[in-house]
Design a protein around this nucleic acid. Sequence first.
DNA 1: GCCAGTCTATAGAACGTTCTACAGGCGAAT
DNA 2: ATTCGCCTGTAGAACGTTCTATAGACTGGC
Lengths: 328, 328
Amino acid sequence: MTGKRPTLMDVAEAAGVSRALVSIVMRDAPGASEATRLKVQAAARELGYRPDSRARLLRSSRTRLLGLSFSTAQAFHAEIVDAAYAGATIRGYDIALSAVANGRPEARAVESLLDLGCEALIMISPSLPPEELAGYAARLPVISLLRDDVGDALDSVSSDDHAGIHLAVEHLVSLGHQRIAHVDGGQAVSSAQRRAAFQAEMTSRGLDARVVAGGPTEEDGLRAGRELQQDLPTAVVAFNDRCALGVWESFRAAGLRVPDDVSVLGYDDSQFARLSYVQLSSISQDAPLLARAAVDRAVDRLEGTTSAAHLVRTPHLVVRETTGRVPG
Amino acid sequence: MTGKRPTLMDVAEAAGVSRALVSIVMRDAPGASEATRLKVQAAARELGYRPDSRARLLRSSRTRLLGLSFSTAQAFHAEIVDAAYAGATIRGYDIALSAVANGRPEARAVESLLDLGCEALIMISPSLPPEELAGYAARLPVISLLRDDVGDALDSVSSDDHAGIHLAVEHLVSLGHQRIAHVDGGQAVSSAQRRAAFQAEMTSRGLDARVVAGGPTEEDGLRAGRELQQDLPTAVVAFNDRCALGVWESFRAAGLRVPDDVSVLGYDDSQFARLSYVQLSSISQDAPLLARAAVDRAVDRLEGTTSAAHLVRTPHLVVRETTGRVPG
DNA sequence: GCCAGTCTATAGAACGTTCTACAGGCGAAT
DNA sequence: ATTCGCCTGTAGAACGTTCTATAGACTGGC
């Protein structure tokens, strides 16, 4: 259909120079005069030459490639992918993507990135046990994004769950709430930390720390919301925004008004929390910013001499329309 | 930190055989006895050897790699990625992912896939003009997924919008509706087709084809819903599920009940349409199935002698709880 | 006129695979 | 015994780059 794609050799012949010189020009490396540079570039354009990244990667020790593993099941990972691309471009790196999907476990995703020759790995909310992660980290820098209990062999860039929960409770208390419940994330990553933080925070204020079992999805929130209604608190802190939405929906179905009858606070500040008809108050981890930080961390590990570290950013509160003064 | 990763040569030395033989064993190719096969495999495992995909890809003419471009802005693309992985694995191919993201245009995404040595390209709802797509298609098979007006140089796998809209209108009419409005998708891919199909379908039934301007997001639906309320129809066919959700929300805000006062029908049958508290009636394109079809099509193009074709699948109706009998 | 230094350009060896060609051993058929 | 073929194995050339070493052509300083 097409004939073969042109190689360095083809361009070299067309321009009447050596292969090596073409390579120099294509890489913008020093060692070619301005005149031949132009001549070679013209020939390359003429032939529609594009460097073969496989060959290039193979030969050069540096691949300038960062591996990013994400999950197709988590919509907000897309936001992170987005930000990571932007960050990598700025630092002069490229990103290789690998998804963990149905029937494609995390280990497989990571290994495909390794085979591609990535110099560092960024894993979004990795679910592998710390030992296995450490195994990878022995071979190349690995950055865990949004999960910090990964041992000392890895870097991590995450958000301070304690601070986030503190902000949440502080906000609600300042609105007069005392009976505040937490719907946790079940088995989800970070759920245990947030639950513990909630308990600590409430206890330290002398308040009752009511926790009901939830999960990361709307369904989980819906179920938990129904359970809450048997003894309705005045405010709810949900594990994440999707869960909060489910809780809210269960209230709505029961004729309860948010925030007049009960306040609902989410976590993550995901895209849809900002939708004009949702306007969910939430704790923002600023995922894109964390993604940038992870990329920076990866590059620093590659180019500097720093060792693994755990970077923790403080989240912030975004007040929208689902939290209000305590009723009555 | 790590030492170099082991190569074929290392394994060969460890097992006391030649490089080529190790290659044969690793590829499960014929030409090695069972005994040495075991010996080599043991040595490879011992050293933690993994083949370098860059070198492998470089040397072999076949890369067995399918490029898949998707958009981080479209949540349901994740479902497709998921299905594509599964399909590719079955056919013995691998998938290279490239995202079109903020500041990373489609052309860039495609070119990075090309440089990786993909043998065929699957593009989800490509937004490039047909001429440019044809340019790529001259070099390798390109499958357009969910968009069919891409010219004859490309394959396409899409869903029959006419049939889908027909199902939608048929369903509503069978429930007694006559005053049915369509909220279109604005500039979105497929919007024009669905709008035209709606107009044709309604006109052929002697009904008034009311169309209001919408878009692909909840916000767009919300806006359109408000406009609709100035002269409320008994049923609404929205461009997609997100749009339908916006329309619904605008009704809910106005105290209108769905489906008692007005029916709302979505399109796409996305993940969230199935959520227990949403239960949106919708037209399903069965995206995962289309993804499988696209993968199959790509592989067939590579292995068979078939030429480009446009494959159209018929969508089906999923009745949930947002459509009901005409009021009054 | 000769050496040192700079700039441009080239040849040829890598990188880690796969592929082609071929060699030796062995059994069966001539 | 020779020939044929199959099976197992190897050597060495590819693939398209980048890298190292070096050659030639100038400059300028003595």
